[in-house]
Simulated assay, not measured.
Amino acid sequence: MRIRPFTTTARTLGLLSLAAVGATSFAAAGPAAAVPGHHGLKPIHQSAAARPLAADAAQPQASGNTLKVGSAATSGVVSPTPKVYLVFWGSQWSSDPAGVAPDLQNMFKGLYGSQDTWGTIMSQYCEGVAKGTSSCGTKGTHVTHPSSTPLAGTWFDNGAAAPGNATAAQVAAEATKAAAHFGNTTQTPNLNAQYVVVSATGTHPDGFPSSGFCAWHDFTTSSYGKLAYTNLPYVPDTGAGGCTTFTDGRLLSGIESTETHEYAETVTDFWPSIGWNGGGGEIGDECENMDSYVALSTGTFDLQGLWSNSANKCATKG
C-alpha cells in the first residue's frame, strides 16, 4: 500500500456554492497523513506541472512498478465478477448541484462489453496463484470483464441526515447497512460486491477535503462477512481540477477519475493488501497522473489510467 500525498487543494468546507468553490485558489499543502487501514488514497491535486498524458503514452517508470500478488488465497485477492452498489448516504442528497448521482450511475452502466476497453486492463490479474506472481497466464481465477453493467444496485439512504463529519467507522457501518439493504447477508455474494458510500455536498467524511484525499477504499468485518467498500466524498466541492489532471473546468471529471481509480483498486486488491501491489502502490496509485476522456455507450467520462503488467506501463485500454 502507498499512502499518497496531494499537491494542491481547494481547502474549501464544501458549504460554499460550486461557483465560489471554483473561484477559490488552490493552496499549497503538505502530504496527507497516513491513515492506518485506508488504501489507494487518491490525492486532491491540480498543479501547473500536472497535465493529462496521452492515453497509453509511455511513462517514465521507477523500478518495481510491476504489480505482484500478495497472497496465494483463493478469495479476497481480486473480485472475479465485479458488482458495484452505489449508496448515496443521507437526506442531504436532496441537493446535488453537480449532478453526481446520475453521472456515477451512467458511468457504471457503460463500464462493460466491447466498448469498454478500459476495464479489460484488469482481466490480466487473478487470485489463487503463488504469492509474488506477476503474470497469471492461464493460471488462477482471473477478473472477468463484465458482459453487462457491473452496477448491481443503487440506494438513496435518505431516511435521515448522514453525519456532517463522518468518521471512518461510520462510513464502514453505512457499507454494512447497505449490504443488508441489498440482501447480501452472507460472505458468498460479498466476495464480489463493493459498496461505494457516496457522501453529499457540504459533508466531510473522514476529514475531507482538509485531509487531502479524494477517496479511499478498505474492507470491514461484519456479520455478513468481510465487506469491500469505498469512502467517496462529494469531489466537486473541491472545485474544477480537484482530483483530475484535466484543466478544462468540468466539475464531474474529478469524481469520475476518483471513482474509477478506487473501483479498479478494489477489483484488483479486494481486501487490501493481499491483492496486487507494486512499488508505486495499487493499480491506480501508479497512474494517477493519467486521465483520459473515454467514450462509453452511456456517455464520455474521465477514466483514470491503470497499471498494466502486460504492457509494462500505464494505460487506458487493455
Rank of each mutant, 00 (worst) to 15 (best):
S308L: 13
N190A: 14
A240W: 05
K109C: 03
Y195P: 08
T154C: 09
S297V: 03
N192S: 15
T66M: 15
N277E: 12
A34H: 00
G90E: 11
L191A: 05
L13C: 03
E265D: 13
P163C: 12
A228E: 08
W216F: 14
W93A: 04
S199C: 04
S222D: 06
L15Q: 09
C214P: 01
T316L: 04
G113Y: 04
S135E: 15
G280A: 14
L232Q: 10
V294K: 12
A295E: 03
A49I: 10
N192D: 15
E262H: 08
H45M: 07
D269H: 06
D116Y: 02
A175D: 04
N190Y: 07
Q304T: 07
R2A: 07
V196Q: 04
I283S: 01
T238H: 02
G279H: 15
G164S: 10
A130W: 09
S310V: 10
A73V: 09
S297L: 01
G183I: 03
P205R: 14
G281M: 03
A98E: 11
V197C: 08
K177R: 14
G284Q: 03
A161T: 13
P102E: 10
N65I: 11
G183H: 06
F219Y: 13
G37P: 01
P146Y: 01
A23P: 06
Q105H: 10
R51M: 07
K83R: 14
H45I: 05
I283Y: 08
A98D: 14
